[in-house]
């Protein structure tokens, strides 16, 4: 009885507020748009039941998504932006994680805290901080002009470059932490053994350190890639009108165009796209957990 209550309470909560809403999205994505509130004509009617539902079921919103090239361009562009920023996050994050793992033991808790601290500060504020730096008259341009590297200010804010910078900046801790965890676990004598067996420092790094931190790299990359794919705040604050990301498209479809059925269809497809990296990520985590046992 006690066990039943323990399971039932969170279970029912999640069913009602997670699964059911999602089924509603699915249902509305199959409905027609209408100039009303709610602005759609439902295809599901309890009175007519399943038969009527399937007979009038139409995928016209999904077909619309394939016809208007805005959508598939947005999907592709989200994928590209997420992938490129993940790569940059890895290139910047790995040396930091490596440096942390090689630092004196008594520094490490402090360094860890410094990595986690930004995570507790508002995401919105961290993105906002870059607006003042990257703008036309911003500090970065002022600095570059002052050093004489450039003659005229660069346009960075409201371009994809700013989006990359924003993603790398906000998701860097997600990359560093798993890699650091993997490197920290690594036995230092392994490098010594590799050097003893004739490896140069660089070769030892390539042949021993990198393979042993592989799981951390994979985990970190997914932790950046998955949320970056559906990102909304960064492209809408740092990106320009040319920055196409699916999260932003969904938002605009919903709030600006008030086309709920299409917005729902966009959401369903975004989720389908996410399933692949999520499954891969789960598999990696599981493999790692098994290896540790």
């Amino acid at each position: 009885m006690r066990k039943f209550a323990l399971i039932a309470v969170p279970y029912l909560w999640l069913l009602a507020l997670f699964l059911v809403p999602f089924l509603i999205v699915l249902k509305i994505s199959l409905s027609d748009i209408a100039l009303a509130i709610p602005p759609y004509v439902p295809k599901w009617d309890w009175a007519t039941g399943f038969g009527a539902f399937f007979s009038q079921l139409d995928f016209e919103n999904y077909i619309f998504l394939t016809e208007d090239d805005l959508y598939w361009k947005a999907y592709l562009s989200s994928f590209k932006i997420a992938a490129i920023s993940t790569m940059f996050t890895l290139l910047i994050g790995y040396p930091i994680a490596y440096g942390m793992a090689r630092s004196p033991e008594e520094w490490r808790p402090t360094l860890m805290m410094l990595i986690i601290l930004p995570f507790w500060t508002s995401f919105l504020i961290r993105v906002y901080a870059w607006m003042g730096i990257l703008s036309q008259e911003g500090l970065l341009n002022q600095f570059l002009l002052w050093t004489g590297i450039i003659a005229a200010p660069l346009t960075i804010l409201n371009t994809n470059t700013a989006v990359y910078i924003g993603i790398v900046y906000t998701y860097l801790p997600f990359m560093i932490l798993p890699i650091y965890a993997a490197l920290d676990r690594m036995d230092g004598s392994l490098i010594e053994a590799a050097e003893d067996l004739g490896c140069s420092r660089l070769m030892a790094f390539w042949l021993v350190t990198i393979p042993l931190s592989k799981n951390g790299i994979i985990a970190g990359s997914f932790l950046v890639f998955i949320p970056a794919l559906g990102e909304f705040v960064i492209p809408s604050l740092l990106g320009g009108s040319g920055t196409l990301m699916i999260g932003k498209v969904l938002w605009e479809e919903f709030f600006s165009n008030r086309d709920w059925p299409v917005a729902s269809a966009v959401a369903v497809i975004l989720l389908l796209l996410l399933i692949i990296p999520i499954v891969l990520f789960q598999r990696n985590q599981q493999k790692q957990a098994e290896a540790e046992q």
């Binding site: 507020l17 809403p21 999602f22 909304f232 999260g247 969904l250 729902s264 975004l270 996410l274 999520i278």
Partner: peptide, 19 residues
Amino acid sequence: MIYAPLVMPEVITGLSLLL
């Protein structure tokens, strides 16, 4: 249902709850 919201894009969670 415990793990999905962790990776679910916020736009989707928000949209579905609103609906």
